[in-house]
């Protein structure tokens, strides 16, 4: 591996986090380089989603140890909006419905916030409409959704498309997609996956959090990590996902608990 030549985008070191005094992350280590796609798998409650929220800066989680570096920035010092402007994007597992707030306005305000940071010019209402029309094609989304309230009354698939649309508009350096495949039928999954593939570049990185192999059939990861009890237990290539699909998580947890006993 020629990692020294590519740029380190994300570096998570010995990360510990609590929610309501309950430890959820117990020492996560992860390095993500430009151009890479990582998949994080694991059972429910293993800490995958927490990891993604902690990277994005969700206020409900308390960091009790470790660091997260994003390029040259210490992410833990930054507010969620500052992280987003730097280019960290979290695709939500359950995108939030916000009645009354126009989707179009929301997209425009957030796009401009990111553009301002990138020193790109601000888009006015008309320019933005053109810009968004372009991006809509990537996710094959009906423009009618722009005029509705943010995610309100969207079906599961529409919500996920709206997430990928945001990703397309914000052009992040690191996209973390938290169970973007859950609740999607096969056609919607393909559209979403095609969008993700299209947006991946040699200068950006993607982390996919998922339960299932089927997303990884559409988006090929460079690395697959398995999480349990708030830690990454095993890291390997894409073949690990196939193995998990076949044999479940038990054997990995077995191996790792044996390891701990031997130590």
């Amino acid at each position: 591996m020629l990692k020294s030549e590519t740029k380190l985008i994300l570096e998570v070191c010995d990360l510990h986090a609590n929610v309501e005094d309950q430890p959820i992350l117990n020492g996560v280590n992860l390095q993500v380089y430009a151009g890479e796609i990582h998949a994080i798998m694991g059972r429910n409650g293993s800490g995958k989603s927490t990891l993604s929220k902690v990277i994005a800066g969700h206020p409900a989680y308390k960091i009790t140890g470790g660091t997260i570096k994003f390029e040259d920035n210490n992410l833990l010092d930054l507010d969620p909006e500052e992280r987003a402007r730097l280019g960290v994007f979290l695709g939500f597992q359950y995108p939030i419905e916000i009645p009354g707030v126009s989707n179009l306005e929301f997209l425009r305000v957030s796009t401009n916030a990111r553009r301002e940071y990138e020193k790109k010019e601000e888009l006015d209402t008309f320019e933005f409409e053109d810009f968004v029309q372009e991006k809509l094609k990537i996710v094959k989304m009906d423009p009618a959704f722009l005029n509705r309230s943010v995610n309100e009354g969207f079906s599961g698939g529409e919500k996920k498309r709206n997430e990928i649309l945001q990703m397309a508009l914000l052009e992040p350096k690191l996209a973390i997609l938290d169970e973007t495949d859950s609740g999607l039928d096969i056609d919607a999954l393909r559209v979403v996956a095609a969008g993700v593939n299209k947006l991946a570049t040699p200068n950006t990185a993607t982390i996919l959090i998922t339960h299932y192999q089927r997303l990884l059939n559409e988006i090929t990861p460079n690395y697959v990590h398995v999480m349990a009890n708030g830690k990454i237990l095993k890291t390997a290539g894409k073949e690990l996902a196939l193995q998990l699909e076949k044999s479940g998580y038990d054997w990995i947890e077995q191996i790792s608990s044996n390891k701990e006993e031997n130590q």
Partner: peptide, 19 residues
Amino acid sequence: YLRSRGIDSNQAATLLLKG
């Protein structure tokens, strides 16, 4: 959700109140 898209907290609050 709004902040994770780069919108600062005051602006996010205003957006939500408007909505």
